[in-house]
Amino acid sequence: MSLFLQNLVNALQWGSFYALIALGYSMVYSILMLFNFAHGDIFMVGAYIGVGVAAVLLAASAEGALALPPWAILVLTILLAMVLTSFVGMLVERIGYRPLRGAPRASAAITGLMIGIILETGNLALLGAQRIRFPSLIDTTVYEVAGVFITNTKIIIVVVALLLAAGMHFFVHKTKWGLAMRAMAFDYVAVPLMGVSVNGIAALTFALGSALAAAAGILYALAYPVLDPYMGIVFGWKAFVAAILGGRVSVMGATLAGFLLGFIEIFVAMIFPSTLRDLIAYSIVLLILIVRPHGFFGEPYSARLRL
């Protein structure tokens, strides 16, 4: 029983990363019918930006220029990295995708792959091949509850991920920008007739998705503090799987599917040798998709591509 609960806790943490990355994938896909394959690399960029922001904040606080407790440095690091990474996302949209808005879907998809490679190798060129360590911002405390070990890091990761997902849900369903995003997800061609700028909403969507990916990057670095330029690739693929599994335009769907993926991976590894983890886990996902090809949630959309 305690083994089960321990794995449940681990799965919640693991699923948090997938859920946050899947949200960005899902929103961009829903609104622009675009697979932003560079999104996993935005997660990586966010983690690296987090390293930079944390280093600056730590240095400032060591010099006494800034008297901040460790938790405040962590919160500031997450928020500032989210803001900075959202600009990276908007830049990717502006340079990589906007010029291709009328182009065939396949062109936009390979653009994503190319931007991903550019971000990975650009990072390599800029910072060199050695792995980079994320500074430790808070001391780890381990709590034992009924034989289950829970660290404060795990609690922070899961709580922050859930708060951000809830915030995103609120934004999409309660604000006028969210309303425009949902409208665009149904029929992006007709949206300008409502006085809504497609480019504006596209940029906003990339900004939000990238901010969430940055948060995921930093939370990941809290648990696994060694970063390398290729850390986003596999995460990106798997979060993409979660996004599709969740269904279109569903913040809840993408979040739940992200956690589900985390659960499947962790529990498969609990039963089978870990080398078989992804083989078995993704065979299960494939079976789920065969039964529910449109994912768990998701809204219908208009297939009319012009007026």
């Binding site: 029929d187 007739l193 208009s302 009319r304």
Partner: peptide, 8 residues
């Protein structure tokens, strides 16, 4: 064809 947002 009116182009309403039928999901809203």
């Amino acid at each position: 064809g009116r182009r309403l947002f039928e999901n809203l």
